[in-house]
C-alpha cells in the first residue's frame, strides 16, 4: 500500500461527492447524473469512471475482481487491479463467486451474480442517443421528455435496410420503463443479465463525467419491435476449452490459413468448467 496517498487514492471530499451522486443514480434508475470527475492516474477512456466508482465503494473487507473483455488477465484489467492493490491494499480475486465488487469493461460475467455483489461498469459514452444527436443540450431535453423517437427511427431504418436490427453491442435498454440507457459496450448477449439482476449495477463514465445505475430487481428491456423481437448472439461452435455451448465466445485465428477456434470470453467461467472436468 502506498502511504503517500489516501486509502483508495481519492481524497474523502471526492469520495463523498461520488457517494452522493451514486445514491441519486440509484434513486433515479438509468438517469445520467453529472459528477465532478477527477483526473485519475490512468488515461481517460481506460476506465477512469469505473475506477472512481470503485474507489468510492471500496473498503478493507472487499474482495475485488477486475475484468476486461471477460478476462482477468488482459493488460488493462491487470493494471487496474494492480492499482487498487497498491493504493487500497485490498484482496483481489479472479473468481466471480469470491468477489464482493467486480469492475468490468465490456462484459457481464457468465456466473450469475448474487445480492451481496456489486458490478461496476466502465463506460466510454454514457449517452445512448449520442451517435444520433451529438449535442448534450439536446439529448438532455430528449431524456427529460422521454422522447426516444430518434432511437426507434434508427432501429427501424436498420430493419428497412438489413432486414434486422444491426446493433450488436452497447444495445440500448429502457430502465424501469422510463430512461433509455446505454448498458456500456457489452455484447447484446449480456443484455438479458441486466433485467431483474439480484446484484446492484453501477456505471461510471469518467471522461464524460456522469454516473448512472440499475438497481437490483429492476425491469430492463432491450429496445425492439413486436415483429422484430430482441435476440442475442448464437454460435454453431462450442468453447474449444471447456465445451460450453451457452457462453459468449471469442474467436481466435490460430494459423495463417485463417483457421478459427472459439473459446469462452469469460476466463473464470471457462477455467472453473475445465477444472471441474479434469
Amino acid at each position: 500500500m502506498t502511504p503517500r496517498y489516501n486509502f483508495a487514492f481519492l481524497d474523502e471530499d471526492t469520495k463523498r461527492m461520488l457517494r452522493r451522486a451514486l445514491l441519486k443514480a440509484v434513486a433515479i434508475p438509468g438517469c445520467q447524473i453529472p459528477f465532478g470527475s477527477r483526473e485519475m492516474p490512468l488515461p481517460y477512456g481506460w476506465g477512469t469512471g469505473g475506477i472512481q466508482v470503485t474507489a468510492a465503494l471500496l473498503g478493507p473487507d472487499d474482495v475485488l475482481k477486475v475484468i476486461d473483455q471477460g478476462a482477468d488477465d488482459t493488460t488493462n484489467a491487470v493494471n487496474i487491479r494492480r492499482f487498487f492493490a497498491r493504493v487500497a491494499g485490498i484482496a483481489t480475486t479472479e473468481r466471480t463467486a469470491e468477489a464482493t465488487l467486480i469492475q468490468t469493461r465490456h462484459r457481464i460475467p457468465e456466473t450469475p451474480l448474487r445480492e451481496d455483489q456489486i458490478l461496476v461498469f466502465q463506460v466510454p459514452e454514457p449517452e445512448p442517443l449520442r451517435t444520433l444527436e451529438a449535442r448534450e443540450t439536446e439529448t438532455r431535453t430528449l431524456h427529460a421528455l422521454a422522447d426516444y423517437g430518434l432511437m426507434h427511427v434508427k432501429l427501424y431504418e436498420d430493419i428497412a435496410r438489413y432486414g434486422r436490427i444491426a446493433t450488436s453491442y452497447d444495445y440500448p435498454v429502457l430502465v424501469d420503463g422510463r430512461y433509455l440507457t446505454s448498458p456500456s459496450p457489452i455484447p447484446k448477449f449480456d443484455n438479458p443479465k441486466l433485467d431483474h439482476s439480484p446484484a446492484l449495477m453501477l456505471f461510471g463514465a469518467g471522461r464524460e463525467k456522469r454516473i448512472y445505475a440499475i438497481p437490483p430487481y429492476t425491469r430492463v428491456e432491450s429496445v425492439a419491435f413486436e415483429d422484430h423481437p430482441f435476440d442475442v448472439q448464437q454460435w454453431d461452435e462450442r468453447c474449444a476449452l471447456c465445451g460450453s455451448g451457452e457462453s459468449y465466445l471469442d474467436e481466435v485465428v490460430v494459423d495463417d490459413r485463417g483457421t478459427r477456434m472459439f473459446v469462452c470470453s469469460d476466463t473464470d467461467f471457462c477455467s472453473q468448467r475445465t477444472e471441474a472436468q479434469a
Partner: peptide
C-alpha cells in the same frame, strides 16, 4: 456506512 446506505437505497 455508505455501503449500507447504498444497499438501502438499492433495496
Amino acid at each position: 456506512t455508505f455501503r449500507e446506505l447504498l444497499q438501502a437505497m438499492a433495496r
